[in-house]
Every structure is written in structure tokens, then in C-alpha cells.
């Protein structure tokens, strides 16, 4: 097989893997939009906040230490213990549930029946607030995140492809783990929404708020539930991306990678987020491989949006989105 074909195959495979990472972020957007019609601008910051909290627990960092030291002149930094990754993940997930309750109690509750743009603006405010809160709680320094996920080239895939094709493919172990986690997440979310009482209530709210309220479904409970799930998904995305680059404030910018995925896959479909992620990931990597060198490279950021726009021309609601026709 010619080298160029092998290289393209490798780029395409890595694109699929990158797409899974994008989809992990997009999933959080979809969950909240599906249940409440809110485009959650703060989803990227939720991932950052979750990852900061996780590392903070793992390292035994004292929250608000900098603030406490500045006010009281103390020298507090750490509790002096570290937590196993699993315990820290459970605690961080609990914090995300608590955060969901706070968001519902102090933000969303007061905005019931407001136009979507108001809710969107509220999430912009939340994004800035949470970013500042994360900074004050855990500090702005870059933190290493290690929850035991292997990283680096998968030697088995490299040696197998080398013996079969004469060229060893590069696939990152972290990406393989991310793919498995994403698959489990999608299966769990699908089972939850299809077969659990709360899941059915969530779908009912998504279909029609008023009708759901009329049959006794608590809108407030559903909002807490959906923001908790989105917070957990943000934690998973934060773990995957944070393992790669360390936990730092630019982690919130991963939301930029999710937008074209949402445009392509649709804002209301969980499988759409996955398929959208895969198409965007593979499309941008193959475009960079074939066309990038001719036009100076660094095409991925903009090409993802071009690809999403191309799909929108033919399916404005996205590949899996609901077609909404409003009649006057």
C-alpha cells in the first residue's frame, strides 16, 4: 500500500479519536438544550471547574487558601493528605450535583418563562462567575491531572499495523480510553432516558414544559437532574482533556471544539453529538493532511466550522436535530 494511503488512514483514525473527545464536550450542551432549550455557554467552564475540583481533592488542596491567607495572614496550602483518584472523582461529581442545585435555586428558578435569550445570557454570566470562583477556590496555576489513564502510543496497534501494512499506526492510549468511556456514557444516558422514570420525565419536559407540569412532573427537579448529569459529563470531559494538557484555564476553550459538532449533529440528539464529533474529527484531520500543506497548515479550527456549515446548507436542523416548523 502506498505510504500516502497509510498516512491518510492513520490521520483519519486519529481524527475519529479526536472526534470522540469533541463529542464528550458536545454531550453536555445537548443534554441541557434537550431538556430546557438553554444553550449553555458555561459548559466549557463547567468542565474546567470540575477538573479543578477533582485535582484539588486529589492533591488535598485547601479551597480558597489564597483568599484565607490574604485575609488572615496564614500560610495554608494543603491539608497534608492526598486522595485516591476514584474517591476524588466521586467527591468532584458530588460537587457538580451541588453546583447544579445552586444554579437551579439561584439562577434558573428566577428565570422560568423568560425568553431563551435571557437564559442564554444567564449562562454567559455563570461562565464568568464560575471561572472566577474556580480561580479563587483552587488557584490559577497549571495542575497535573493523573487519574491513572494511560497515555502515549499504543504499542500493540503499532506493532500489529506494522507487521500487516509495513507502517505502525499511532493511536494514543488516552484516546482509546476516551472512546470506551464515551461509548459507555452514551449507552448509559440512552438507557436512562428510555427506561427510567426520571429519564421519561426528562423527555416529557423536553417535549413540552406545560404538559409535563400538568401531569405533576417537577420542573425544578428535572432541571437539577439535567444540570447534574451535564456536570458529570463535564467532569468526564475535564478528566480526558485535563489529562492531556494539565488542568489550566484554557480548558474552558474546549467548548469551541464542540460548537461545530453541535451544528452538525444537532442540538437535541445524543447520538448526533457522537456522530457529529466523528465526522468533524475525521474531516478536519483528513483536510489538514491532504490540503493543509498546500495552504500553510493550521486548517483544523476553521475547517470544522466550514464542514458544519456545509451540512447546515442541506439540513439546517443538523443531522439528527428535530425539524421545528413554527406556524403563525
Amino acid at each position: 500500500m502506498p505510504d500516502q494511503v497509510l498516512y491518510a488512514m492513520e490521520a483519519g483514525l486519529n481524527g475519529l479519536m479526536a472526534g470522540v473527545m469533541y463529542a464528550l464536550v458536545a454531550l453536555g450542551f445537548v443534554l441541557i438544550f434537550k431538556a430546557s432549550g438553554i444553550f449553555n455557554y458555561a459548559q466549557g467552564v463547567l468542565a474546567l471547574f470540575a477538573a479543578l475540583t477533582l485535582v484539588g481533592f486529589q492533591d488535598g488542596q485547601i479551597p480558597f487558601a489564597h483568599l484565607i491567607n490574604a485575609i488572615f495572614g496564614t500560610e495554608l496550602h494543603n491539608f497534608g493528605w492526598t486522595l485516591p483518584a476514584f474517591v476524588a472523582i466521586v467527591l468532584a461529581a458530588a460537587v457538580m450535583v451541588l453546583l447544579a442545585m445552586v444554579i437551579e435555586r439561584y439562577v434558573l428558578k428566577h428565570l422560568v418563562n423568560q425568553p431563551p435569550i435571557i437564559l442564554f445570557m444567564a449562562t454567559i454570566g455563570m461562565a464568568y462567575f464560575l471561572e472566577g470562583l474556580g480561580d479563587i477556590m483552587w488557584g490559577a496555576d497549571i495542575k497535573k491531572l493523573d487519574v491513572g489513564i494511560p497515555q502515549g502510543i499504543n504499542d500493540t496497534i503499532e506493532s500489529v499495523t506494522d507487521s500487516l501494512l509495513g507502517y505502525g499506526f499511532f493511536i494514543d492510549n488516552l484516546d482509546i480510553v476516551a472512546s470506551v468511556v464515551a461509548a459507555l456514557l452514551v449507552i448509559s444516558l440512552t438507557l436512562f432516558s428510555q427506561y427510567s422514570k426520571q429519564g421519561r420525565a426528562l423527555r416529557a419536559v423536553a417535549d413540552d414544559h406545560q404538559a409535563a407540569l400538568s401531569v405533576g412532573i417537577s420542573l425544578r427537579f428535572i432541571w437539577v437532574l439535567v444540570w447534574s448529569i451535564a456536570g458529570f459529563v463535564a467532569l468526564v470531559a475535564g478528566i480526558m482533556w485535563g489529562s492531556k494538557s494539565g488542568v489550566q484555564f484554557s480548558l474552558s476553550l474546549i467548548a469551541l471544539k464542540a460548537l461545530p459538532v453541535l451544528m452538525l449533529g444537532g442540538f437535541t440528539s445524543i447520538p448526533g453529538a457522537i456522530v457529529g464529533g466523528l465526522i468533524i474529527g475525521m474531516g478536519e484531520k483528513l483536510f489538514e493532511f491532504f490540503v493543509g500543506p498546500m495552504i500553510g497548515g493550521a486548517t483544523e479550527n476553521w475547517f470544522a466550522y466550514v464542514l458544519a456549515l456545509l451540512f447546515l446548507v442541506f439540513r439546517p436542523q443538523g443531522l439528527f436535530g428535530e425539524r421545528i416548523i413554527e406556524r403563525v
Binding site: 479519536m17 494538557s245 484554557s250 480548558l251 489538514e288 497548515g297 483544523e300
Partner: peptide, 21 residues
């Protein structure tokens, strides 16, 4: 060999596959 990375640089798989090749 010139290899650009767009801001913020969170995802660089293509660039490092090129370096590997």
C-alpha cells in the same frame, strides 16, 4: 519544516503525526 498550531493549541494531533512521519 514549518508547522503552525492555531490558538489555543489544545488539539495538536495532526501536527505531531506529521512530525512522526
Amino acid at each position: 519544516i514549518e508547522i503552525p498550531v492555531d490558538h489555543p493549541g489544545q488539539e495538536q494531533k495532526s501536527q505531531w503525526l506529521q512530525i512522526r512521519r
